[in-house]
């Protein structure tokens, strides 16, 4: 299948801060839109304006596709605009210590590989990326490893999400639709849809 995502191969960008919320990834004023087009231009807009040294401002990280991040990445608002803006900026994989759940689910919907690694490994990886950009990183979802130069670390991902990407079956809508008969039957068992007599 053409949608199979077995690995992501590209240069890295480090952002080792914790509790990065989705308001910071894409400020709410950019949600005034009816499509996701153009959101890539505004990824981390306010952080970038306030910090010239922000990684997303640095030319050596331009074109990166693997974001190296800290704990609880993507917390806060459910806005899918956040992973959309990262994806449209060029990010194809995020390696973080941990993710907020809604953000992780949104990444799965978009085919963005969101994997976790230990803090020590992430600190080493981020240091390597900062020391010698552009540094190529290969995130392999089959072997669950990330390699960059001589550095190799193991990464984790819930098996359901990993299998979906590797098999290319992350079009969840198609799979949900395939159960439409079962859904119709299921409705007859839900008390509040059957006058509380079911």
């Amino acid at each position: 299948m053409t949608n199979e995502i077995k690995s992501v191969n590209g240069t890295g960008i480090p952002l080792m801060l914790d509790d990065i919320d989705t308001d910071r990834i894409i400020p709410a004023r950019y949600l005034r839109c009816v499509t996701f087009d153009g959101l890539g231009d505004y990824a981390f807009e306010d952080d970038r304006q306030q910090d010239p040294r922000h990684p997303f401002n640095q030319s050596e990280f331009r074109g990166a596709s693997v974001l190296v991040a800290g704990r609880n990445f993507g917390c806060g608002s459910s806005r899918e605009h956040a992973p959309q803006s990262l994806m449209r900026w060029g990010i194809k994989a995020v390696i973080a210590e941990s993710f907020a759940e809604i953000f992780f689910g949104n990444c799965c919907s978009l085919g963005v590989a969101a994997v976790t690694a230990s803090r020590d490994d992430l600190d080493r990886l981020a240091a390597a990326v900062e020391a010698a950009p552009p540094l190529n990183i290969v995130v392999c979802l089959e072997s669950l490893t990330a390699t960059a130069g001589d550095l190799s670390l193991s990464v984790e991902m819930p098996s359901s999400a990993r299998e979906a990407l590797v098999s290319g079956e992350w079009d969840y809508l198609g799979q949900l639709l395939s159960a439409s008969c079962a859904i119709r039957e299921h409705i007859t068992t839900v008390p509040y849809l059957n006058a509380f007599s079911a």
């Binding site: 806005r79 809604i102 689910g105 949104n106 919907s109 969840y172 809508l173």
Partner: peptide, 9 residues
């Protein structure tokens, strides 16, 4: 809470 792809689903 869910994302927009989930809303479509």
């Amino acid at each position: 809470g869910i994302g927009t792809s989930n809303v479509a689903q």
